[in-house]
Simulated scan of single mutants.
Amino acid sequence: MTRVLTIEDDEVTAREIIAELEQHGIEVDWVDNGRDGLVKAIGPGYDAITLDRMLPGVDGLAIVTTMRQVGVETPVLMISALSDIDERVRGLRAGGDDYMTKPFAPDEMAARVEVLLRRSRGGAVPLTELRVADLELDLMTRNARRSGRDLELLPTEFRLLEFMMRNSGQVLTRMMIFEAVWGFHFDPGTNLIDVHIGRLRKKVDPAGVTPLIRTVRGSGYRLGDA
């Protein structure tokens, strides 16, 4: 059975996570502090981890940083009340694989955990470079290339493309994109996503190449070559 470790000091939130993941057939262990969480996180036996950003004892950033330093590649979904973009970037650079803010919809949390599980089973993605077909994204130098050609991306375009590449092949809802890229956990009712997707398409999918960014009607967007 798939096993997930939940490191969360708020009991109400932890029980929401446990109840939702158990409905998906996932066994969940819960730890309510950072010190015990770190011990379990660097040990064997877990397929994924949900990790609170702010914990007593040892905070979430320290936990995921230590995991990566000692070579533990268990996928991590960071969950936090801190919703600003700098915190998201900090969490992902520390080694987190995804980041969502509180309050969150339990079913979306479970969907994100399942994305991490599928990606992990398909082979770990290098922490410093993402690749989808002939599209490359270097997370250290912040450079993007398609078919050997450099892409000039604005900061928001880079974050949007990074999120789509980390979840390639998956349908990403507008809500998921708003939360991951802009820090909103609600739909502001604007065409913000459509405008940025349109600009990104012009750079990633110019004439003469196979389109990678696809619109899934009524659902959202997907990045992939099939």
Results as ranks from 00 to 15, higher is better:
Gly183Cys: 08
Ile26Leu: 06
Thr2Tyr: 05
Gly34Met: 08
Asp10Ala: 10
Arg68Thr: 04
Leu200Asp: 09
Gly183Ala: 11
Val132Gln: 11
Arg201Tyr: 05
Arg121Asn: 15
Thr141Lys: 14
Ala207Trp: 02
Leu139Phe: 08
Arg166Tyr: 05
Glu114Pro: 00
Val204Gly: 09
Glu136Met: 14
Asp97Gly: 06
Glu114Thr: 09
Glu157Ala: 14
Glu11Gly: 06
His196Asn: 09
Asp84Arg: 15
Val89Gln: 09
Ile63Thr: 07
Pro106Gly: 08
Val204Thr: 07
Leu200Ala: 12
Pro211Met: 11
Arg149Asp: 12
Arg159Leu: 13
Arg118Trp: 06
Glu27Gly: 04
Gly91Phe: 05
Ala124Ile: 15
Thr156Ser: 13
Arg112Phe: 01
Val216Phe: 00
Thr74Pro: 10
Thr173Glu: 06
Thr13Tyr: 02
Ile42Leu: 10
Asn143Val: 12
Gly96Thr: 03
Phe184Val: 10
Glu157Leu: 11
Pro155Val: 09
Glu136Leu: 14
Val4Thr: 11
Arg217Thr: 14
Arg53Asn: 14
Ala180Tyr: 02
Tyr221Ser: 02
Thr65Arg: 15
Thr2Phe: 06
Ile17Phe: 01
Gly123Ala: 08
Glu162Met: 10
Val28Ala: 10
Ala111His: 06
Gly198Phe: 03
Val58Trp: 05
Pro126His: 10
Asn33Ser: 14
Ala144Lys: 12
Val76Leu: 13
Ile18Gly: 01
Ile197Phe: 00
Arg131Leu: 15
Arg53Leu: 15
Arg93Trp: 03
Asp59Trp: 02
Phe104Lys: 01
Leu51Asn: 11
Met67His: 04
His185Phe: 07
His185Ser: 14
Gly91Ala: 15
Leu160Phe: 06
Thr2Arg: 14
Arg3Trp: 02
Leu139Asn: 04
Gly183Glu: 07
Leu127Asn: 08
Arg146Ser: 13
Val209Ile: 12
Asp98Leu: 08
Met176Phe: 00
Glu108Asn: 04
Val58Cys: 08
Leu137Ile: 07
Gly43Cys: 11
Arg214Tyr: 01
Val132Gly: 04
Leu192Gln: 15
Tyr99Glu: 08
Ile63Phe: 05
Asp134Ser: 15
Arg112Glu: 04
Arg166Asp: 09
Lys203Val: 07
Val12Lys: 01
Thr6Ala: 15
Ser83His: 08
Leu130Lys: 04
Leu38Tyr: 10
Phe158Leu: 14
Thr2His: 12
Ala41Asp: 02
Glu73Asn: 13
Ala94Met: 01
Glu22Tyr: 00
Val125Cys: 03
Asp29Ile: 11
Asp36His: 09
Val216Thr: 06
Ala62Phe: 02
Arg142Pro: 07
Ala207Asp: 08
Met140Glu: 15
Gly43Asn: 10
Gly183Thr: 08
Glu162Asp: 01
Ile79Arg: 03
Asp36Tyr: 00
Tyr221Phe: 12
Val4Leu: 10
Pro211Trp: 03
Met175Cys: 00
Ala180Ile: 07
Asn33Gly: 01
Tyr221Gly: 00
Val70Gln: 05
Arg131Gly: 07
Lys102Tyr: 05
Val39Lys: 11
Ala48Phe: 00
Ser219Phe: 02
Arg131His: 13
Ala111Glu: 09
Ala62Tyr: 00
Asp32Cys: 09
Gly60Thr: 04
Tyr99Val: 03
Leu223Gln: 03
Gly208Val: 13
Gly43Trp: 02
Asn33Tyr: 00
Ser147Trp: 04
Met165Leu: 12
Arg159Cys: 05
Gly57His: 02
Leu5Arg: 10
Phe186Asn: 11
Leu192Tyr: 03
